[in-house]
Nucleic acid binder design. Structure first.
Lengths: 141, 141
DNA sequence: CTGTGTGCAAAACCTTTGCACGAGC
DNA sequence: GCTCGTGCAAAGGTTTTGCACACAG
């Protein structure tokens, strides 16, 4: 499996952008996080390693990671963007508890088939998806 | 089919809330809109009928409609919430063009099966879903 | 009458942007 | 050196909230 930092560096080189220590720290921290992390949560984690990194840099890096496919934006309806590792090609969805906010990932082969079918029918070139199922988890009942 | 205003009025009565002319106008306008409408677009439509209705009332009403199941919040990644009729039990998804923003609805029976399967497996009581497929539409290629 | 709803403006919130300085190549 | 990146603060956009008054039940 190709490492994320290689993907990033190739992308930077190709676009004439530069490697910086900030980008390294942010990527590292993002990968170490469990996933489904918001910009401010990531910022909070980063603050511990390097308190001088600003919000803008975190946001800009997340956009960069999204552009090169390392990250993917997801949205759980809490009013802010969340990010997860995007290079993982497994088509998955999220099961979100509307009571306690707990989130689980699930994988279903059926999603891939559905996406293929739909995008052919409407003549779209598919480029990602989001599938979120909301419910109440066992504990919250 | 049970009318939305009946659903709303029952909900209001049950919660000890009140019927108001504003809520009527907002509901009417929301239903007349094509769907996938944002709060400010709805406000804009409402302004023509009754220019004195404020933003807060529109937001508060949309939350109310969402609570009683008349509306459903959807999110197309443009940074603001959009609302569609929620009592329509047809399980559908959205196909969003990431280039021009055009949105189409599609229906697939497979989604229902998938949701049922997943929520049983993880022991969640399902309560809604979002399924968005992103791509580039025919025109934008 | 009592408590809820409304409109306004201000606040809160997340995200983006302008700018001067700093750092990679 | 030239260009891109960064941090800060300020601006941008959407949504929520506090408050005094209005209105439904």
């Amino acid at each position: 499996m190709r490492k994320e930092n290689e993907i990033l560096n190739d992308y930077l080189r190709q676009k004439g952008l530069k490697q910086t220590s900030q980008r390294n720290v942010i990527l590292e921290t993002f990968l170490a996080s469990g996933g489904h992390i918001s910009a401010d949560e990531l910022q909070e984690m980063i603050r511990k390693k390097n308190p001088r990194i600003g919000f803008s840099t975190v946001y800009r890096s997340l956009r960069l990671f999204t552009e090169c496919g390392i990250a993917r934006e997801v949205n759980f309806g809490d009013g802010r963007a969340r990010f997860e590792r995007g290079f993982d090609k497994t088509q998955h969805g999220h099961l979100v508890c509307t009571s306690c906010g707990k989130t689980e990932e699930f994988t279903v082969a059926a999603i891939q088939k559905t996406i293929k079918h739909i995008s052919e029918k409407y003549d779209y070139k598919p480029d990602g998806h989001r599938f979120e199922v909301y419910g109440i988890c066992k504990k919250c009942r």
